[in-house]
Write a protein that binds this DNA or RNA. Structure first.
Lengths: 141, 141
DNA sequence: AAGATACTTGACTATTTTAGTCAGGTTTAT
DNA sequence: ATAAACCTGACTAAAATAGTCAAGTATCTT
């Protein structure tokens, strides 16, 4: 059970962005350097974030990215959703008609996995980008 | 972020075992049939569970496996631990001297990943095999 | 107008992990 | 004896991951 770097990088990059974008657009190059993430990879990630309207892009010299919403309105769940970082505990889900594994009943542990998914997703739904930045500033003082 | 089948199968198989082992040892063949998990794969999994003393094996005809502890004393965390299903959110952890990415400070999101890991692990620490079986029986009635 | 900076897109690929399979054992109840 | 069931280690196909690479386009500054 592990978080992929795509999801992790997306959050790291946005946390970085949230700290600096009130001054001026932040270039991926800067984020790349500060966070140690490959520029090419960041471009992939931000392309998705832009399509989901989490960030806005500004082209040209002095360009970069800015947040498209207030930091408190961007939850981790929105970020993970944008980069296709899904919480998945089990396959037996979609075939609503039948139970799991094509059998007529739910598998013994079905409810457990549902609970687990909810448990994790709740964490992601509650936590906002603002929380992240705040925690960080507080620790610095 | 997903659960691997190894961890999932281990829990499913043990839940199955917990329901039947008060009568007689349960053969992997039976579990394989009931849960739809390959026998060969189950053998790999139970080898690990036995080494961690979660189950006990009984060889020969009429043999099989039984739980080695009471169902309420077997937590999901013990099961996942036995089959190497780890919760991992981030790499930057072990190099205790330095911060993340070899830098002198913690990465912006370090605490977040720690929180997330704890959040998930708490779920695994609380949930026992007994809980699972109970919930299931209750649902059936 | 030129050049530099920075975003944009899509294809490509090496590595790692996963999810098993396969083959050959050993033990023990009947 | 023999069949059921455990035991072990090696092997592998397929998928996912974590990027790289190449070839653009847009816009600001001078």
């Amino acid at each position: 059970m592990k978080l992929t770097s795509k999801g992790r990088y997306a959050v790291m990059a946005l946390a970085d962005l949230a700290r600096f974008d009130n001054i001026s657009p932040v270039s991926l190059r800067d984020i790349s350097l500060r966070q140690g993430i490959s520029l090419d990879y960041l471009e992939q990630i931000f392309s998705k974030l832009r399509k989901k309207e989490i960030v806005q892009s500004i082209r040209g010299t002095q360009g970069g990215y800015v947040l498209n919403k207030k930091a408190k309105d961007i939850k981790l769940t929105n970020i993970f959703d944008a980069v296709d970082e899904k919480v998945k505990t089990v396959q037996c889900k979609k075939e609503s008609k039948k139970g799991c594994n094509g059998k007529s009943t739910k598998c013994l542990t079905h409810n457990l996995w549902d609970e687990l998914e909810n448990h994790i997703n709740n964490f992601f739904k509650e936590k906002s980008l603002e929380d992240l930045v705040k925690e960080n500033i507080e620790r610095r003082i």
